[in-house]
C-alpha cells in the first residue's frame, strides 16, 4: 500500500496521504491522482481505505439515518423540524387522518427519508415516534458512534443499567426517557462522560461503574 501515513496518526487539511487514488476514504479528497486530507483528524485505516475521523464535524444527513428533532413550524402540508447544527428537516403532515398530533415544540424521533438538493425529508408514518417526556441532550455528531458502541453494545449497557429508553439521533440529539428523573440524569451524565472521555481506554467499564454509582434503587447516592 503506497501510503504516507499510519493508523491513528493526526493529520491536518492538505496533508498528502497516499499516491493511490483508490484508497481515498471519508474526509479525504483526490487531486492529481493523489489522496489528501480534507479535515484535521485521526487516520483510520479500514476496509483498505484511508479514512479520517474528525474531532469535530458538521452533521451531514444521509438516507436512513436515525434523527431526533424538535418541531419548529407547522404548515398545511409540512412540519419543519430543527435537527440542530442549523439544519431543518421537513416532515410530511398527514393532516386529520394522523394518529398523532404534532405541535410546535414537540420532540420527534424518526429517520431521514431523503436528503438532497431540495432539502432534508424525514420519514413520517410508522417510524415516527413522538417523545412527550424525558431529557433531550446534545452531543457532537462525530461522537454518536461511540455512544452507540460496537453493534450497539454501549447503548445496551446504558439501557440495561438504567432501564431508560434512549433515542439516539445521528445528528447528535439524544432523548432519554425513563421512569424517574434521577435515572434520566444518570444516563445524561454517562453520555456526557462518553463524549468527553471517548479517547481513553476502558470506557465501557467506567460507564457501567458510573451508572451503578448514580442509580441505586432509582436514587442518586452522593455526587460522583
Amino acid at each position: 500500500m503506497s501510503s504516507y501515513v499510519h493508523d491513528r496518526e493526526v493529520v491536518t487539511p492538505g496533508q498528502i496521504l497516499s499516491n493511490d487514488h483508490r484508497l481515498a476514504g471519508a474526509y479525504t479528497y483526490v487531486y492529481g491522482g493523489k489522496v489528501y486530507a480534507a479535515v484535521a483528524g485521526i487516520i483510520q485505516l479500514r476496509d483498505s481505505k484511508i479514512n479520517i475521523l474528525p474531532a469535530k464535524s458538521p452533521y451531514k444527513p444521509s438516507e436512513s439515518d436515525p434523527v431526533v428533532g424538535i418541531i419548529i413550524d407547522s404548515k398545511p402540508s409540512n412540519y419543519e423540524v430543527d435537527l440542530g447544527w442549523h439544519l431543518v428537516g421537513f416532515l410530511h403532515n398527514p393532516g386529520r387522518r394522523s394518529r398523532m398530533r404534532l405541535q410546535i415544540g414537540d420532540v420527534v424521533y424518526t429517520h431521514v427519508k431523503h436528503s438532497g438538493i431540495r432539502g432534508v425529508f424525514l420519514e413520517g408514518g410508522r417510524e415516527l415516534v413522538k417523545i412527550d417526556r424525558g431529557l433531550l441532550i446534545r452531543v457532537s455528531p462525530v461522537k454518536v458512534p461511540r455512544i452507540i458502541g460496537k453493534k450497539g453494545s454501549m447503548l445496551q449497557i446504558l439501557n440495561s443499567e438504567s432501564g431508560c429508553k434512549i433515542y439516539v439521533g445521528r445528528n447528535g440529539l439524544i432523548a432519554v426517557v425513563g421512569e424517574s428523573p434521577e435515572r434520566e440524569f444518570a444516563v445524561a451524565s454517562a453520555i456526557k462522560m462518553i463524549e468527553s472521555e471517548s479517547h481513553l481506554p476502558g470506557l465501557t467499564e467506567r460507564v457501567t461503574h458510573h451508572l451503578r454509582k448514580k442509580i441505586i434503587g432509582g436514587e442518586i447516592v452522593g455526587e460522583d
Binding site: V10, L53, K56, K150, H199
Partner: peptide, 12 residues
C-alpha cells in the same frame, strides 16, 4: 495540539 486532547482513538 487541539486534536490530540479531544479526539477519540477510534471506535472500540
Amino acid at each position: 495540539k487541539k486534536f490530540e486532547s479531544a479526539t477519540p482513538l477510534g471506535e472500540e
